[in-house]
Nucleic acid binder design. Sequence first.
DNA 1: TGCTTTAATGAGTATATGCGCATATATAGA
DNA 2: TCTATATATGCGCATATACTCATTAAAGCA
Lengths: 111, 111
Amino acid sequence: MSKRLPMPTDAALELIAARFRVLGEPSRLKLIRALESGEKPVNELMTATGLTQANTSRHLQTLTQAGILGRRREGLNVIYFIADSSIFELCAHVCGSMQRQAVNQAKIIGS
Amino acid sequence: MSKRLPMPTDAALELIAARFRVLGEPSRLKLIRALESGEKPVNELMTATGLTQANTSRHLQTLTQAGILGRRREGLNVIYFIADSSIFELCAHVCGSMQRQAVNQAKIIGS
DNA sequence: TGCTTTAATGAGTATATGCGCATATATAGA
DNA sequence: TCTATATATGCGCATATACTCATTAAAGCA
């Protein structure tokens, strides 16, 4: 079933790495987590994540530029939402991988 | 089929972010790519990636500590190999996501 | 036009980290 | 033990970036 992919070029690896870097910040993952239950304005995201206003805004910008979030203005508020929902599968994938590793380590160390 | 995952704690997000950060370096992705065809000693990885010896060694250390690679000594050589092959699915996932985004942008811009 | 509220951004600082150079460590063989 | 080869690591530098504070921009309302 799984297609065999061509070997990525160096340029492709740069792009992939850039995407991973965007996800490599806990604050940005918090924002994504906060948006899983539905779109929210910036001020709600601030309180949900505990980030300052400036910080929230910058991270939202990074995530939006990466195509992970989308935004829409509604009066004074700007509403952010998940634009690429495959991000959750990606996180789940990493979670699963890390859980397997942890279980293996536990086995090796023993109880 | 897909399980509903519990919302990750902040500590879990830190770990996930750390894993993403490890993958957020093109040089490390190059090493992973070089190892896709099979295990290799450090000197081969150096030539395959164009990295210096010190740099290669450090990145290999980072990847090994993250549980992505494994290592085994064989005489003077140290052989590195993929320890967590789910890494390829992960990269393919990101690739697919970015391709979809690129196609959408192309549609929006028009030919 | 002001005034208020919400969000974005410019500037400066602190920290993390990738890199190169040099050196240390590990293993094999003479 | 001495030497050669392969890999790891200490150190310093340069750069990227996350953060804070202050200011600006955008939108609604009196």
